[in-house]
Amino acid sequence: MDTSKGTPFLELKDVNKTFNLASGEVTALEHVSLSINKGELVALVGPSGSGKTTLLNIIGSLDRPTRGEVLLEGIRIDGLSEEDLVHFRREKFSFIFQDAKPLRMLNVLENTLLPFNFFKPKNRNGNIKDEGIEIIKSLGLGHRIYHMPSQLSGGEIQRVAIARALITHPAMILADEPTANLDRANRLFVIDTFRKLSKEKGIAIVISTHDLEIANRADRIIHLKDGVFLKDEVVACTPCAA
């Protein structure tokens, strides 16, 4: 991707993260610097415990670095208070967690519109419910709009999470192992959807995965091991072009 024009959407500068445990300090990230642009699909790969989740959390400002800086559109956000971060979360980020099931008491549409229980959508000129239905249909769940989560398969549940992530028009989507529990067809569906969204809507998307087939469909792969960068490679997604 072209990173030369202007400030990157999100930038980490020499980020370190250590956790203090009773048994001593655990270093989860060391000297990590990276930048991510709009419209980019980035995959974090690495063995278990290599710091993928920790890095995603810091990128999405769910967690603070122990040292180093996090910049969003050129502005430091690592020192912001929890109250200020709530607004960033609402306006800029959407998260997809591996084991965050949709709320059981809400149907697919209500789960998709969940964020708007907490704040009003901005700059919309259509009906928000219609838009939700559109998004659900575009993810192939048109026949499930009013179904409850208990009636859905694992792949469908993950699509609900994607729908919920899209409804807020985020600048960035952070997904921790979004394909982990899915069969191959569903894994490919998720990654191809992300790819399409990053290209068509200019959303920056960062996912973590163990699966190289999935990672290879990203624009960039960041390899982590024991909390340090092994390499940051640009990939040309050969299957995607086809």
């Binding site: 979360r89 964020p115 907490f118």
Partner: peptide
């Protein structure tokens, strides 16, 4: 607890 995390991640404030 995970539900609380999810609600917070979609923008729920503490008072909400």
């Amino acid at each position: 607890i995970k539900e609380i995390g999810l609600l917070k991640s979609v923008g729920a404030s503490r008072s909400q």
